[in-house]
Design a protein around this nucleic acid. Sequence first.
RNA 1: GGUGGGAUGGCAGAGUGGUCGAAUGCGGCGGUCUUGAAAACCGUUGUGGCGAAAGUCACCGUGGGUUCAAAUCCUACUCCCACCGCCA
Length: 429
Amino acid sequence: MLDLKFIRENFDTVRTMLEQRKMDAPLDQLINADRRWRELMGEAESLRSYQNSVSKKIAELKKTKGDASEQIAEMRQVSQKIKELNESAQVKKSEMDEILVNIPNMPHSSTPVGNSEADNIEVKRWGDVPNFDFAPKPHWELAEALDIIDFKRGAKVAGSNFVLFKGIGAKLERALINFMLDLHVSQHGYTEVSPPFVANRSTMTGTGQLPKFEEDMYRCDRDEANESGDLFLIPTAEVPVTNIFAGEYLDGKNLPINYTAYTPCFRREAGSYGRDTRGLVRVHQFDKVEMVKFTLPETSYDEHERLLTDAEDVVKALELPYRVITLCTADLGFAAAKCYDIEVWTAAEQKFLEISSCSNFEDFQARRANIRFRREPGAKPEFVHTLNASGLALPRVVIAILENYQQVDGSIRIPEVLKPYMGGVGRIE
RNA sequence: GGUGGGAUGGCAGAGUGGUCGAAUGCGGCGGUCUUGAAAACCGUUGUGGCGAAAGUCACCGUGGGUUCAAAUCCUACUCCCACCGCCA
């Protein structure tokens, strides 16, 4: 969420930002509602102030057995008037809040301005794209031939784009999770957490998934009488992990705080029907290891770079060729100020596939979720900066391993670094 | 699932209609004393909105209500604790 005061004072900047993001929001309505809200509040507050002073008089009169009936009669009117003013103010406030929660974050100055994903900027490439002396097969063919993924039965159990991993395929998932968590904990200084896989409405709003993207979420536990009691399957560990400190004050001495978590992720993928329907590219449930950072405002961009290299280390260790791009304003996520995508090379389709998103949200999520810190005991609270990166999304790693490590006989070589996690198995055949 | 208790400032914990943004203790900050520290003593110490400021308003789990006036009364909800039952 943007600071209302910031929008008031930087109206044109915010409007330009929306244009650059190819988004829209009723800014004029916001400003008008804001003006009216302040008027109504001002009126209500000065009346309230009067009411408070008269109330004290009434209290004194009552104590001395005096007659306060005149004051009480007057306050009855005043009280009614205050109530009306507050109600009108509340209407304006709700109007503002609804607009405000739907305004995206301000991109950082280093985020390139662009019109579409074509304007994303490639930052670097790493690794050699494999050369095959045969035609490489797509991962779904390899996986089915090796009997490590059963797409048909996954669909039977839950629906299309739900996946059943089997045998050494299931073990590969588990090995990847363990390898990634171990790497982040032992090499990169993260603390492992294992959060709930469901989140309530307030948590989902804190990181920015709600209210704008409710259609993409799996909602369960629908309670008509109590909407705030709704629970959602998490679309990413970012949601529960970032909200761990919602509403709290952190000690500035303890920042940055680095957490890593494995969770399954659930996404309806509403609006993406017909895209990437084959194989593992776009599924409704997938495993992911996530990294989340809580930092001081002044260090968040250094931490952002570190976060990127922490994610890259996973891809490097797996010896998968990849590139890093900086997302332009048109492609940048709702809550992010800056975002790098890591894209891994897929040998069959001969293209790069997003495997990690590495974002700095600055104080956008912290303001929504009310996550603050004090530099010194007793110092003024400030909002932390929050960041996160996938490290990594599992199915797409599996795609890359299957396609890039495939042999002419259809078997798959296991990356060296995974062998200890696979019980020494070096090849799927 | 049942019964009972609870939710108050960074923490602990008082407060059952008006003088309560809220006692007290701990912690924090400043000071006195001390070579230094500890102890003791004194002072100070919540968050947010509006406002240029003075100031003012709001906030005692959350929402509604009663009242001239609510931390305090009523109501619904959420969460926590204890015990019982059931179950992994």
